[in-house]
Every structure is written in C-alpha cells, then in structure tokens.
C-alpha cells in the first residue's frame, strides 16, 4: 500500500500531464478541425442544390466547394422581419445558438445561388428536434419561393439505419425536389407521411423512424416560415 501523500502526488502529476497533452493536441489540431467543419457545412448547403450543380456535393474537393462559394453564392443574413442584417456572413451564423435565442433576436442565413442559367435559387437553413437530438437541414427554393429545388438534412444523434437515413439515404431528401410550400395562398409546408405520399405537400417517411420524420416535418413548417417576410420583400421589389 502506498501512503496517502504518494497517491495525491501521483494523481496530481498524472492529471497535469494528461491535461497538458490533450490541450496541446486540441489546440494544435484546432485550425484543421475548423476548416473541416466549415467545408462540411458548406457541402451541406451545396447538397441542397445538387440537381442544379449536376454534381454530388459529397464528392467535391475542398477547392471546388470554396470556388462555388466564392463565385456563385451570395450570402445574406436576415432577421425575423425580413430586414437584411449587414456585416454578417451566412456561413458564420451558428444555427444551434440562434435556435436558443428569442425569435426577435435570431439571425437567419440565406444563400443565394445564381447558376449559369441566371435563375436564382434561395437556400435557407432550418433546425429542429429529431428523436434523440437536434436535426437540421438546408432547403433550396426556386425564385417563386414555393417550389422546393432540393434539400439536405443532417442530425446529431439519430439512430443509424433508422432516423439517420434522413442524411444517409439520398432517396429521402431527393423526394423534396419539386414539392410545394403553398396550397394556393395558404402556407402548408411539406409533411412527412406514412402509407404513401400523395400530392405536392407530402413525402414518404422512413419506416422505423416516425419521430424523426415528424421532426423533419415540424422543422420545415416552422423553419421556412421565419423566412416568409424576407421572401415577401423580394417579391415586392421584383
């Protein structure tokens, strides 16, 4: 048996050594982590407009992603009234933090993609709750602000093979292409349903992932609505 003094010294030294080692590693790798994260988030935005880019976002190189962002994408941040907030880039908005603020103080990022055809596509970010943790997505809208041009989803901790399919299975997000947000003049959003989707306001859910599916539907219904005032101002200015 070692005496208490030895135990205390041993544990203290061990803790200090380990803490030093880990913090060195963490700070050393931080620039790489941040760059990886930024590219990952940008790829998620591009994944929503894959059909317009004619290329899978997942297979793009870092440079490709960056060049699309530099050349074809305009970043606009708006508030809940639809006014543009100056001096902020969409890619710097942390949706997880925004979600915790009251709506009046939130910043809503918009990415405006203008391809070779000249048609603008508006990509908005939404965030909600899945079964275990947060889920989020980027929804691309045609310039009529009604037709969905594409969508991409991600999640923090949904079950692999079930809820995680919203991200892993491209067939789920592909369904959103061409769906419509408005039924006439009323905002209906797009619902995730069981037993076969019909019409322009429904997509098929994933079997075994009902709660994640409901989470996606709620997230879309609430999340896109925050952007309505902004869309109205653009419609008026046209």
């Amino acid at each position: 048996m070692h005496n208490t003094r030895y135990v205390v010294i041993f544990v203290t030294v061990l803790t200090v050594v380990v803490a030093l080692l880990l913090s060195l590693l963490a700070t050393g790798l931080q620039p790489i982590h941040q760059r990886n994260e930024a590219i990952y988030n940008k790829k998620a935005v591009l994944a929503a407009i894959e059909s317009s880019l004619n290329q899978e976002a997942a297979n793009m190189s870092e440079d490709q992603v960056q060049s699309i962002f530099d050349e074809d994408i305009q970043q606009v941040v708006v508030d809940y009234r639809g006014n543009i907030i100056e001096g902020v880039r969409s890619e710097d908005v942390d949706m997880a933090k925004e979600r915790k603020k009251p709506v009046e103080q939130r910043q809503f990022p918009v990415y405006i993609y203008e391809g070779e055809s000249g048609d603008k596509i508006y990509i908005v970010s939404v965030r909600g709750s899945g079964l275990w943790d947060e889920i989020w997505g980027n929804i691309a809208l045609q310039s009529d602000f009604n037709t969905i041009a594409g969508a991409s989803f991600d999640h923090k901790g949904e079950t692999p093979g079930l809820g995680a399919e919203i991200k892993d299975n491209p067939k789920f997000s592909e369904q959103f292409e061409g769906k419509e947000l408005y039924d006439g003049d009323t905002y209906t959003s797009v619902d995730v349903v069981k037993n076969g989707a019909r019409g322009p306001h429904e997509v098929d859910g994933i079997s075994g992932a009902t709660i994640t599916g409901n989470g996606v539907a709620d997230m879309l219904e609430q999340g896109i609505q925050y952007y309505e005032p902004y869309f109205e101002t653009i419609k008026k200015s046209n």
């Binding site: 880990l22 590693l25 963490a26 790798l29 790489i32 982590h33 990886n36 990952y40 997942a58």
Partner: peptide, 9 residues
C-alpha cells in the same frame, strides 16, 4: 481529435 482532423465525415 485525430479522427476529427483526418476524416470529418
């Protein structure tokens, strides 16, 4: 930490 730097996905 290493995995986060090597393969973020």
């Amino acid at each position: 930490l290493v995995l986060k730097a090597l393969n973020y996905e």
